[in-house]
């Protein structure tokens, strides 16, 4: 799995809707289909993409498969945002130093 997979998986509005729903609580395919304007097989297909990207995980509860958000996949997305945050932290320090230099 690469980070690109996570981004690609997140790029689709239906998949984001599924993730929003799963962030609230774990759910079965049936639960998810109730809240979405697409068929159960389409939901299953999107769940497959989300699982492949490491954003969703699946557990068995008797006969049912229960899906939930997988924190590891999101950690990847956070990872690159964090790089940019660190970049700006350092650059704002550089800015302060730059302004201080010309002060006198």
């Amino acid at each position: 799995m690469t980070q690109a997979d996570s981004f690609k998986a997140l790029a689709d509005p239906t998949r984001r809707a599924i993730l929003d729903r799963l962030r609230a609580s774990p759910a079965s395919v049936g639960d998810l289909t109730d809240g979405l304007p697409i068929s159960q097989s389409a939901v299953s297909q999107q769940l497959g993409v989300l699982r492949a990207a490491g954003l969703v995980k699946q557990e068995r509860d008797g006969q049912r498969r229960i899906y939930s958000v997988d924190g590891d996949g999101f950690a990847q997305v956070r990872d690159w945002i964090t790089h940019y945050e660190a970049f700006w932290d350092e650059k704002l320090d550089d800015l302060a130093a730059h302004l201080a230099k010309g002060r006198n």
């Binding site: 980070q3 981004f7 790089h83």
Partner: peptide, 24 residues
């Protein structure tokens, strides 16, 4: 920072990994 981006490579290109430290 919507989705569908390939920022990791960009960030690596800018040499920002050294900045990551414990922030993650």
């Amino acid at each position: 920072f919507g989705v569908g981006t390939l920022l990791p490579r960009v960030v690596l290109g800018m040499g920002w990994t050294r900045l990551l430290r414990g922030k993650l």
